[in-house]
Amino acid sequence: MNRRDSLLAALVATIWGFNFVVIDWGMSGVPPLLFAAVRFTVVVVPAVLVVRRPDAPWRVLAAVGLFMSLGQFGFLYVSMDAGMPPGLAALVLQAQVIFTVLIAAGVLRELPTRPQVVGVVLGCVGLVVVALGRGGHVPAVALALCLLGALSWGIGNVVSRSSGISGGLSLTVWSAVVVPVPLLALSLAVDGPAAVGDALASFSWQAVVSTLYTAGLASLVGYAVFNTLLSRNPSSAVVPWVLLAPVVAMTSAWLLLGQRPNAAEVGGGLVLVLGVLVAMRPARARPSDDGGVADLVGRDDVPAQR
């Protein structure tokens, strides 16, 4: 990658990392599932008019939207509302790489490479360290919900891989079509019509700014730039930049929200990130290789961090 592309990759990772702090800042007073529904409504409404639909059946787009958007962000927003700090949430979501490798091995029979096995083990060790050393400020249920978000993301990656869809931006936009209504229905069922109505009636300017940032910058602009970089550079040169997002999230949460990570969170996070880096390491080509999990983890049609 040249210097300009490297700076663009760092910019996208910064936007995606700061995204978690913006979500936490804007969600005050708004039920989390409703807030996620509003975000994806803003993603869909203008974008479907200008972004071409990917060549895929609706059932595939619906499955990707169910796991990669509704499941991932539904669990994430509820997790953060339950007390998950934004910096730690950004870090734990990177467990999606581990889940992707494991699920692809079981469902698609794509045997992991040696680096991926080592990476999964390191990632699991890092998660255990984070879980054991999270301290009293992170409820166990919030951590579990965030892990469910990472699991849903991993399932979405495998669905996308098995479908053969290309084009991350178009897939992000059109799979999101099926997301707002179920999220709104869930919010009505969980929070009640009165709470949903009150939240919409008193939607604060912070919530508006947060929604515009998460939908406009993080989802649409971020993916447009990220996919452009993937079209000009190898995936192995672009995807690792995403690991800057947790660093940005944890640093900005520390500086702006006073959420200082403890030693176990930092140490476990470093081990987790190391595991992700090892898992994304390209394997040596073998005569029988026709694109397996190593492809999946670093493919340009598998969204990395929204």
Results as ranks from 00 to 15, higher is better:
residue 23 I to L: 02
residue 29 G to A: 05
residue 15 I to L: 11
residue 14 T to G: 10
residue 11 L to V: 11
residue 4 R to Q: 10
residue 28 S to D: 15
residue 20 F to L: 07
residue 26 G to V: 11
residue 24 D to Y: 14
residue 7 L to E: 00
residue 9 A to D: 09
residue 8 L to F: 11
residue 20 F to M: 01
residue 32 P to V: 14
residue 4 R to A: 14
residue 28 S to W: 06
residue 32 P to M: 14
residue 1 M to W: 13
residue 28 S to Q: 15
residue 2 N to Y: 01
residue 7 L to T: 04
residue 13 A to L: 07
residue 29 G to V: 00
residue 12 V to Y: 06
residue 25 W to H: 01
residue 20 F to N: 01
residue 17 G to K: 03
residue 17 G to H: 02
residue 24 D to K: 15
residue 30 V to K: 05
residue 4 R to F: 14
residue 18 F to S: 04
residue 26 G to S: 07
residue 29 G to I: 03
residue 16 W to I: 01
residue 4 R to C: 05
residue 6 S to L: 09
residue 4 R to T: 14
residue 24 D to R: 14
residue 9 A to Y: 12
residue 4 R to G: 11
residue 23 I to P: 02
residue 22 V to Y: 10
residue 32 P to Y: 09
residue 17 G to D: 12
residue 2 N to I: 08
residue 21 V to E: 00
residue 1 M to G: 12
residue 6 S to G: 15
residue 16 W to T: 03
residue 4 R to E: 08
residue 13 A to K: 01
residue 3 R to Q: 14
residue 17 G to N: 04
residue 9 A to I: 12
residue 22 V to C: 06
residue 1 M to A: 15
residue 16 W to P: 02
residue 20 F to G: 03
residue 3 R to Y: 13
residue 24 D to W: 09
residue 24 D to V: 10
residue 10 A to Q: 11
residue 25 W to P: 04
residue 18 F to D: 03
residue 28 S to P: 06
residue 22 V to W: 05
residue 17 G to E: 02
residue 10 A to C: 08
residue 17 G to S: 02
residue 27 M to Y: 04
residue 28 S to N: 15
residue 1 M to R: 12
residue 5 D to N: 14
residue 24 D to N: 14
residue 26 G to D: 08
residue 20 F to E: 01
residue 27 M to A: 00
residue 10 A to T: 08
residue 14 T to C: 10
residue 12 V to W: 06
residue 32 P to C: 15
residue 23 I to R: 00
residue 32 P to E: 12
residue 21 V to T: 09
residue 25 W to K: 06
residue 21 V to F: 06
residue 31 P to K: 01
residue 28 S to I: 15
residue 26 G to R: 05
residue 10 A to I: 13
residue 31 P to I: 08
residue 5 D to P: 07
residue 21 V to I: 05
residue 31 P to R: 10
residue 7 L to G: 06
residue 16 W to Y: 13
residue 15 I to Q: 11
residue 6 S to H: 05
residue 22 V to R: 07
residue 29 G to N: 07
residue 32 P to S: 13
residue 33 L to M: 05
residue 7 L to S: 02
residue 29 G to L: 08
residue 26 G to I: 12
residue 17 G to F: 09
residue 2 N to P: 04
residue 12 V to R: 04
residue 29 G to R: 02
residue 5 D to G: 11
residue 17 G to P: 07
residue 19 N to Q: 07
residue 30 V to Q: 11
residue 18 F to P: 05
residue 16 W to D: 04
residue 30 V to C: 05
residue 26 G to H: 09
residue 30 V to T: 13
residue 6 S to C: 11
residue 27 M to T: 00
residue 5 D to W: 06
residue 32 P to D: 11
residue 9 A to Q: 09
residue 24 D to Q: 12
residue 32 P to N: 13
residue 28 S to C: 09
residue 14 T to A: 15
residue 11 L to M: 13
residue 16 W to N: 07
residue 23 I to F: 05
residue 22 V to I: 12
residue 28 S to T: 15
residue 13 A to D: 06
residue 6 S to A: 14
residue 5 D to K: 08
residue 5 D to F: 01
residue 26 G to C: 10
residue 6 S to I: 11
residue 14 T to E: 04
residue 33 L to C: 03
residue 4 R to M: 13
